[in-house]
Every structure is written in structure tokens, then in C-alpha cells.
Design a binder for these strands. Structure first.
Lengths: 139, 139
DNA sequence: ATGTATGCAAAACATTTGCACCTGG
DNA sequence: CCAGGTGCAAATGTTTTGCATACAT
């Protein structure tokens, strides 16, 4: 019962929040923009305003339920937080998103921050390229 | 004579382009947004439209004269290209930008792309944190 | 009941574009 | 002269916000 998840993070259990969480958990796409979620809601017959979708996604992010990735400046997509930190590979042809985690990189980043006198709070790493499917389809 | 730089990359030498290149080369800040450049132009008494600033910066980027960094989604800043690839550290307090280059990370990124079947075209890495100045000023 | 949440429409931003006019080579 | 560049205003796309109404507890 996912309404528990909402209560647990201190969010009042409302219909929009339940529906949005449901979509995030059950959609076949792991990464969705606010617009994607909004359209999915409409398809399910839920009349929820786009502004509410944005507000709820931001709250979910604040609560740690989801994380926000910012793609190529000015376009955000969200993914369910799975507790495991990871970075992303983005296909520049089909926009497919793959994930990876590399301890060597993570550690080097920490070392660089120290070297430069920064107290690291976060980091973001995106590798852009052409995924195998797009390479073979010559697309 | 920087008008040569413009001709060299195939851009017609016009007043806005000369002035904008001049600002990029002589400003004390290495990283500037379109708005920053626009304001700097006004301060120098040059009446150049913001739209032109955007157009020219985009052309300069295409010509390889400058590179574009995208900060926290929906805000671009430009820096003069120095030929050497590097990544960035951003201070979340004062927005200071520091640069670094790490061969270990560069190499791991290439390896990961191969591992995941991606033909890497580019990558972007930002380390966010609090710079030493902001740490000491307790700001 | 009562403090939040929502919906809608309008605002905010950063950036881009259409189009008539101007300019560099 | 003429292709390309510029200025202005209007359009864009995404996200945020103000405010009156509706809802969860």
C-alpha cells in the first residue's frame, strides 16, 4: 500500500500524489518528465493539473522518493530513487537512458574536491553517445 | 588583432562579433552568461541586442572559439576555449567555478561507454560543493 | 474546522525566431 | 550590390506562482 510511503515521508495522502506515485512505480519507462507523467495521468482518466504534477514531483524529490536528472539544460526527468547512487549514459539519437556506477570515478571525484579545497555536496556526470541499438539501426 | 580570429573561423567581421569577442577575452570573469555579456556590452556603451548576443555566442561555440557549460538546468555560461578539455567544480554558495582535468576519470568514462555499448560523443561532469573561501567565511 | 493541496490561468525565465532593415566585403 | 547580420518584438518551452476553491485529518 503505497499511501504508507507518502505518510512515511510526511506528505498528506491525496489522490494526485497517490496517482503520480503509482505512475512512477508502474510505468514501463523508468525516466519520465513532468509532461510524461501528466500525459500518463490523462490516459488513465485522471484530471490532474500540470502545475500539480510539477509541485508533487518537487515534493517527492525533496522527500527522497525520486531523483531529478537534468538533461541538456532545461529539461528535467525523474526516476524512482532506489537508494543506490548512479550516473547516466544518454543516447543522443533515441534519448535512451542507461545507468552505471563506477567506484574509481566516485573516488577520484572526492579526491579532486579535496585537492581543490571544495567540500563536495553533490556531483553529476553524464556520458553522451550513441547506444548500440542506434548504431546497428544506422539510424 | 582579433578580427583575424573571426575571419579564420569563417565569420564575417561585424561590430557585434568583435565587441563580444573582446568582452569574452578581456573580462575578469572567465565564465559569463549571455545576460552577463549583454550587460557588459551596455556598460561599454555598445547597443547590441540580446538576441544578437545569443546568436553570436552560439556561432562562436559552433566555431570552437568558446564552450558552453550548462549549469543546474536552464542556465548556460560560456568560456573561451583554450583547447584543453576540462571539467568543472561549482561552488553552490558563491557560484565560483573551478576547473580540473583527471585522466583516470576520462579513461574510466571511455571504458564505461564501451562496456555499455555506447559510442561516446561527449560527456559532462560537474562536482558541486562549497569552495574554500565560502567555508572559511562561514557564509 | 482548518491548514493544506489543487486547478486554472497568468507570470516568469532563458532562449529562439520572424521579419524588415542595415552593412561588410 | 547582395548575401548575410542585426534589432526588435513576439513566440517558445518549461517550470513556477497567485489565488479562490476543495479536501484530508
Amino acid at each position: 500500500m503505497e499511501s504508507q510511503d507518502l505518510r512515511k515521508v510526511g506528505l498528506k495522502v491525496t489522490l494526485p500524489r497517490i496517482k503520480i506515485l503509482d505512475i512512477l512505480e508502474n510505468s514501463e519507462q523508468r525516466h519520465m518528465s513532468a509532461e510524461d507523467v501528466y500525459k500518463a495521468l490523462l490516459e488513465m482518466g485522471n484530471e490532474i493539473g500540470l502545475a500539480t504534477v510539477y509541485r508533487v514531483l518537487t515534493q517527492f524529490e525533496g522527500a527522497g522518493l525520486i531523483s531529478r536528472l537534468t538533461i541538456d539544460g532545461g529539461h528535467a526527468v525523474f526516476e524512482l530513487a532506489d537508494g543506490n547512487h548512479h550516473d547516466h549514459l544518454l543516447c543522443v539519437r533515441c534519448n535512451r537512458i542507461a545507468e552505471f556506477m563506477d567506484d574509481v570515478i566516485e573516488q577520484r571525484q572526492r579526491a579532486i574536491a579535496v585537492e581543490k579545497g571544495f567540500k563536495m555536496t553533490d556531483h553529476s556526470l553524464y556520458i553522451y553517445g550513441i547506444c548500440s541499438e542506434c548504431q546497428s539501426s544506422g539510424e
